[in-house]
Design a protein around this nucleic acid. Structure first.
Length: 425
RNA sequence: GGAGAGGUGGCAGAGUGGUCGAAUGCGCGCGCUUGGAAAGCGCGUAUACCGCAAGGUAUCGGGGGUUCGAAUCCCCCCCUCUCCGCCA
């Protein structure tokens, strides 16, 4: 959510921001609702002030006295009027609040113009794409793949997009998670094991609700949501809290399985491990002082990049243009790993600065020494990293002529062997 | 899941219909005092919204209701604790 005061003072800045993100929002309707709400609020508050004054006066009067009785009669009318206007106010306020939720976050000045993914800017490229296993095949075509990554049985037991990982595959998933968590701990992120179901209030604070309920699995009868990312429980950890300024920045990471319905996203891009309904991911999260959020974003991106560097996987970093930025982000880098078999880039991390957008919804603040008042923190998050696509790249890029997959040296201590084998046994 | 007890400011804890945003204590901040500190004394110490301002309004777990007036009475929900049941 945007700062309502800022919207009032600088509606044209917001209008420009909406244009940069190539979104369509009826800003004038929001402004009109805001004006209406403030007018009604004034009226109600005047009536309430009358009621309070009368209450004080009546407290000093003898209960049954003629003055008292007269006052009761008088205030009955005021009370009725106040109730009526308050009902109207509440209605306006709710409509205003809903309309405020339709306004996107403002893109940062350094975000490039552009409407489509093609207009994202390649920020950097690492590793040599050309020299990686020229004979590589898409991972689902590797001999023995179906035995270690059992999609058929996953579909039987649960549904499409819920594979079983068997033997070395399961071991490699666990090794990657362990590696990611250890590296992140070394980088200063405190590990957290959060709940993987969240309530509606939490999903609203991070922006999944309203509008994206169709993307989440919802439980019956308790109406909890299976987390689409650890970002949701992690960000909400400090919801409605005021942090000490000295405690900032707070750095945390968490592994969770992630659940996404991915409604409507079927097609060529979703084969194998590319897109699943359940996948494992380690998420990095920062709560920072507003003055530092962009240097913290750079460091966050570096932290995610380092993981791919240590695994020896080629990747590139994209700086997202306005049109591809997303509703809640001010600035976002996507990190894409090269999958040599598919000959395409796979997104494995998305590092974003939300500035105060999430913090306002979630009411996460710090007590400012400067102003002496609570101020909103800035929140940032990024994957560090998503497992299946890293796995896909690893399988494809490191495939050996003998059909085995060479495990990167950094991962060997976690995996326990130098090669993953698809052969039975 | 059953039975019972509770949820008030940073914490503890009073308050059962009116002048209560809320006593008191602790904690914290500032000042006095002191060589310095402790003690003592004094003052201060929630959050949000509206308003140019003066000022006003809201909030006692959440929501609804009764009433001229609700922290206080009624209803629903959530959470915590104790006992029982079940259970990795």
């Amino acid at each position: 959510m945007l700062d309502p005061k800022f919207l009032r003072e600088s509606p044209e800045v917001v209008r420009a921001a909406i244009a940069k993100k190539h979104l369509t929002v009826d800003l004038d309707a929001v402004l009109a609702l805001d004006a209406a709400w403030r007018g009604q609020l004034q009226e109600v508050e005047v009536l309430r002030a009358q009621q309070k004054a009368a209450n004080t006066a009546m407290a000093a009067l003898p209960k049954g006295s003629p003055e008292f009785v007269a006052k009761v009669a008088e205030m009955k009318a005021v009370s009725a009027q106040a109730k009526e206007k308050d009902t109207a106010l509440k209605e306006t306020e709710e409509r205003w609040r809903q309309s405020m939720l339709t306004l996107p976050n403002l893109p940062h000045a350094t975000v490039p113009e552009g409407r489509t993914p093609e207009e994202n800017v390649t920020f950097s490229t690492h590793g040599d794409v050309a020299t990686v296993s020229p004979a590589a095949v898409p991972h689902w075509e590797i001999g023995g793949f179906d035995r270690l990554f059992d999609f058929a049985r996953g579909a039987k037991v649960t549904g499409a997009g819920f594979p079983f990982y068997v033997g070395d595959a399961a071991r490699l998933v666990r090794a990657l998670l362990h590696f990611f968590l250890d590296e992140n701990a070394r980088a200063g992120y405190t590990e957290v094991a959060p709940p993987i179901f969240v309530n509606a209030a939490s999903a609203t604070a991070t922006g999944q609700l309203p509008d994206k309920e169709g993307q989440m699995y919802e439980t019956t009868p308790d109406h909890l949501y299976a987390v689409p990312t650890a970002e949701v429980p992690l960000t909400n950890f400090f919801r409605d809290e005021i942090l000490a300024e000295e405690s900032l920045p707070v750095l945390r990471c968490a592994y969770t399985p992630c659940f996404r319905r991915e409604a409507g996203s079927y097609g060529k891009d979703v084969r194998g491990l590319n897109r699943l309904h359940q996948f494992d991911k380690v998420e990095l999260l920062k709560w920072v002082h507003p003055a530092t959020s962009y240097t913290e974003l750079d460091k966050l991106r570096d932290d995610a990049e380092r993981l791919l560097q240590k695994l020896g996987l080629p990747y590139r970093v994209l700086l997202m243009c306005g049109g591809d930025l997303g509703f809640a982000q001010s600035k976002k880098y996507d990190i894409e790993v090269w999958a040599a078999g598919q000959k395409r880039w796979l997104e494995v991390s998305s590092c974003s600065n939300f500035e105060a957008f999430q913090a306002r919804r979630a009411q996460i603040r710090y007590r400012s020494r400067e102003t002496g008042r609570p101020e909103l923190v800035h929140t940032l998050n990024g994957s560090g990293l998503a497992v299946p696509r890293v796995l896909a790249a690893l399988l494809e890029n490191n495939l050996q002529p003998d059909g085995r997959v060479k495990i990167p040296p950094a991962l060997v201590p976690f995996f326990g062997k130098e090669f993953l084998s698809f052969a039975p046994g």
